[in-house]
Design a protein around this nucleic acid. Sequence first.
DNA 1: AAGTAATCGAGACGGTACGTCCGGTCTTCCT
DNA 2: AGGAAGACCGGACGTACCGTCTCGATTACTT
Lengths: 195, 195, 195, 195
Amino acid sequence: MSSTSAAAPGRPRSERARLAILDAAADLLAEGGLACATIEAIAGRAGVSKVTIYRWWPSRGAVAVDAFFHRHEATIQFDDTGDIADDLVGQVEALIAAFRGGPGRIMAELIGAAQSDPSMGQAVRDRWVIPRRTATKAVIKRAVERGQLRADVDPDVVLDQIYGAVYFRVMIGHQALRKGLARELVSNLLDGVRA
Amino acid sequence: MSSTSAAAPGRPRSERARLAILDAAADLLAEGGLACATIEAIAGRAGVSKVTIYRWWPSRGAVAVDAFFHRHEATIQFDDTGDIADDLVGQVEALIAAFRGGPGRIMAELIGAAQSDPSMGQAVRDRWVIPRRTATKAVIKRAVERGQLRADVDPDVVLDQIYGAVYFRVMIGHQALRKGLARELVSNLLDGVRA
Amino acid sequence: MSSTSAAAPGRPRSERARLAILDAAADLLAEGGLACATIEAIAGRAGVSKVTIYRWWPSRGAVAVDAFFHRHEATIQFDDTGDIADDLVGQVEALIAAFRGGPGRIMAELIGAAQSDPSMGQAVRDRWVIPRRTATKAVIKRAVERGQLRADVDPDVVLDQIYGAVYFRVMIGHQALRKGLARELVSNLLDGVRA
Amino acid sequence: MSSTSAAAPGRPRSERARLAILDAAADLLAEGGLACATIEAIAGRAGVSKVTIYRWWPSRGAVAVDAFFHRHEATIQFDDTGDIADDLVGQVEALIAAFRGGPGRIMAELIGAAQSDPSMGQAVRDRWVIPRRTATKAVIKRAVERGQLRADVDPDVVLDQIYGAVYFRVMIGHQALRKGLARELVSNLLDGVRA
DNA sequence: AAGTAATCGAGACGGTACGTCCGGTCTTCCT
DNA sequence: AGGAAGACCGGACGTACCGTCTCGATTACTT
């Protein structure tokens, strides 16, 4: 007697259309960035009417975010080897590797567009940032329990000082994501930069 | 025979129009964000024709960046007291204070839009990020010379791990710019978070 | 074993739905004219699905015509007093009275829409124009038999020269349906306008 | 110092676009009737943007009327031979001839659509009906002056009883515009149908 | 003083995309 | 088999801005 067992009246949502929309949007995103992923282009390529898109997504940004994560979602993984530094470095290097390719550019455009579209911000947070931070934060907390990190440090701030720096470089473009950056970020923060 | 002494033929550029455009754009930006600062709205409010805007700026984003910085530029100041930690904290606190108000939201929108408009990225770097970084980097280098910071540390990375964290919070919105954040950012990095 | 006695298999047509549709359509017609009587609005107000409407009517215009006549059909009446002139004047006055109110506007819209929708034209002819003409034509023929009208005159043309003039004024709007018009139309045609 | 000598500021209206729009609309009207003359189709065929149409016409109906009359306007002519009957018959026959072809169908659609679009009604009256009636009314008045018609007859009613009958047949479609109709209409009204 | 050249205002223009409406068709389950 | 619900595709709507264009008018420097 769960609420899901009660079949909704009327024609059910077309899974075919849903996937066609996400695929079309992801393709357009990959080909020409967010600017090419217009509602009309998505609808045209997916063989779907615009109304069908508007029925299920509030804005084109929301479709784009959904499409992007639908295609790139299976990649949270974290090896907790017990060495907090190595673990963090590995994680950051994976992020940097992803950001060097096309998806990095798209990700930056999505976060960029989210500045003017709250529904995109919500989607980015819920579907990308928060899941990753939650996983990493758990590792940090275990390191605290093991006595590797100070207990009075706010794990959120730690994450921001490592990952924020990467996103900052991507979005401002003042410095490249050069080789060795991941290790520098981690060791600077763990050991401090004071002489 | 300097290039500036040779008066160009024809009617000279109207300074009145230039200022009216920048003022109108800054007002619109403050009122409704980047979305409201359309070329047509700027032209209409400034009492200027669209062509006059296009003659001097490449895109509406470029006008917006110019207008924003024209209004908020007089604020780089850096007291080099000799205590690197206090100096950095003061600087970061000033940035956070600015980001808490309306200008923070606009700044985020400008950086956001820059993800799809290279000319805006250029403008943001040249007129905002780089001047501030240059000033701060000089302070860091003096601290290195004074032996307060390690010489093998990349100052750019140091800056990213402090300032990048602030921008990250503003643009993702996953955490607030809470009280005490500035000092935590600086002390974490200077002293390290290892137990 | 006539065709009507053989009950059709399956669920019989819902009379409730039929009346709800006609009522809803007539209401919408009265409230906002033909433009408001969309299939969706009719279905919504009648608490009926669109398919149910499409199953029984070919187009929204056909529903509208049907609904209009369903509400206004009980009004053919003709007193054959023996004086052809008075009888015609009475009839025309009744038509003009009807056309002065809301139904006149709707009637005009229906005939108007019929210009682009043959099924509406058919409905207007079959359910409105022809029944009335048939009744009036019979009166004319009796007048011919009584020797009041010339036998070589085409009754259809006579009707068009009286009723057509009224419809013309309604649809073009160049002249009002003023008082006294009915008698003028009849006497002009009966007695001629030649000096 | 006439008002027209003062050149308006800004780019002047493009005569090329105006004619392209009218031509495209008239072509579409001739090919597929009013239903085909959508704003998008007109704009597409004319090589013009939709906005340019909306800037100068209030509705697609208004464009259609304008286009129709732009193409068929040069045809008011009236021979006043002194014999009012023959003159009227000739005139009505010309109208019937026109209504038998494609333009008749289009005209009917335009009048039909005007029932739901006041701006079209206005245009039909101003550009088609009233000019023709004015010309014909003058002939009738001269016939009154010559003593051929009764002076107490309303010329507007006379016109309606002849022309209205023709429009009525076209719009209702209950009877054809058969041969000889013009003369019957005129002689019926001039001489009366009473025995 | 006339000529040249660039600017400015106004606003029309072609174009792209928007978000919405409605028409007809379909799919599902219920009666 | 009919019916209610409602998702679906298609086509057109009217609007917003974009970036370009044509005007006439203005404002300097150059002959």
